[in-house]
Amino acid sequence: MNRLLLVLLQLLLTIVVLGATAWGAGLLIFRLSGTIGIAAAIGFGIAGIAGAIGLWSGAPRLPLSFAVLFVGLLGWWSSLLPSHDRDWIPELARLPQIAREGDRLTVANLRNFRWRTEADYDQRWETRSYDLTKIEGADLFLSYWSGEAIAHLLVSFTFKESPPLTFSIEVRREKGEEWSSLAGFFRVYEMAYVAADERDIVGLRTHARGEDVRMFRLRISPEQSREVLLAYVADVNRLAAQPRWYNTIFTNCTTVVYRLVGSVAPGWSFTLPLDPRVVLSGYLPGYLKDIGAVRQDLPLGELIRLGRISERARTISLDDPDFSRLIREGVPSAQP
């Protein structure tokens, strides 16, 4: 029995050591440049394998040496601090800030670019005001660019007598920096909020990128929409004051929204812990259906079919002031 427990403990420690080895090697590859990073990762990988072997060969100095090396790597990792002061790509150069006076919100650095292609666009940064007493609801957009598993999420708040206010959580890339989902685990990218006009943030995806954008009207009252919007406002201002790392799993366009919406309890049946469909955001519509956040009287497939707006959106000019109204035509309303 004691022998079995010892073997199980060795197996557990081996898994921990090899997991730490993979994470540390990834950190070195993505945080150190070129051949230096590769060489450091190889060296760290050899140390990790030696540590795992030492667990079984009766050479405790090997796993202990690796543990010391790993603790040192953790110390370096924890010293990596996010920053607002980098040479950002133009569309993420400014972070929104939102002031509230009573029932009026004033959004500074609201993005309203006009996109012809991803590389050809007119830059427009604006300040807009919104009346919280005139909020009507909230809609969700999912933009698919590579298969069904992953999509980018946008949340848009609708108002009487005002255009929608749309939020996107994005990787804040520097000029010349490429996106890698693996690099997103290793404190490579900062997080950014974008507050935007739908003609910008949706039009970028429907017109300039040609992505498959799907829209879902959320079953949420004006009062609940207001609370969700104010949760956004608070987090937008927190980020503007204190930079934050983006993480591919834990701090991305869906997990952050999940926490924001859950914090104000809009009456949906949230599942805990985090549902895999929140991480694999392309499958989010099924999760929304299960928690009661979208129409319940229509099959999921019908909601998805009617929510595909890209083809219709591309027939509408991004200069058309009725863009937001027109892309909603045919999309099922929040209530029957």
Rank of each mutant, 00 (worst) to 15 (best):
residue 88 W to Q: 04
residue 331 V to G: 04
residue 284 L to D: 00
residue 61 R to D: 12
residue 119 A to T: 14
residue 75 G to D: 03
residue 79 S to N: 07
residue 142 L to K: 03
residue 136 E to W: 00
residue 282 G to R: 06
residue 297 D to G: 04
residue 60 P to L: 09
residue 102 G to N: 08
residue 242 Q to V: 13
residue 36 I to T: 15
residue 301 G to V: 12
residue 66 F to I: 06
residue 294 V to A: 01
residue 136 E to T: 13
residue 105 L to W: 02
residue 314 R to H: 08
residue 23 W to L: 13
residue 266 P to Y: 04
residue 256 V to R: 12
residue 19 G to S: 14
residue 208 A to I: 04
residue 121 Y to N: 10
residue 270 F to A: 02
residue 144 Y to W: 02
residue 280 L to Q: 03
residue 265 A to R: 05
residue 246 Y to A: 08
residue 219 R to I: 01
residue 153 L to T: 13
residue 132 L to G: 01
residue 335 Q to I: 10
residue 323 F to R: 03
residue 28 L to W: 06
residue 28 L to V: 10
residue 334 A to K: 08
residue 89 I to L: 14
residue 75 G to M: 13
residue 126 E to D: 15
residue 48 G to A: 11
residue 63 P to F: 11
residue 193 Y to A: 13
residue 8 L to E: 11
residue 276 P to N: 07
residue 204 L to I: 03
residue 131 D to M: 03
residue 42 I to K: 04
residue 171 V to K: 06
residue 261 V to L: 06
residue 264 V to Y: 00
residue 227 E to L: 00
residue 28 L to N: 08
residue 32 L to N: 12
residue 219 R to W: 01
residue 37 G to I: 10
residue 118 E to C: 02
residue 298 L to C: 04
residue 300 L to Q: 02
residue 189 Y to R: 09
residue 73 L to G: 05
residue 173 R to T: 11
residue 313 A to R: 12
residue 36 I to G: 12
residue 75 G to V: 12
residue 300 L to C: 08
residue 145 W to T: 07
residue 24 G to Y: 07
residue 332 P to Q: 09
residue 120 D to G: 01
residue 1 M to G: 14
residue 165 L to A: 00
residue 323 F to D: 01
residue 265 A to P: 01
residue 298 L to S: 01
residue 177 E to A: 13
residue 317 S to I: 10
residue 27 L to M: 13
residue 40 A to E: 05
residue 276 P to A: 12
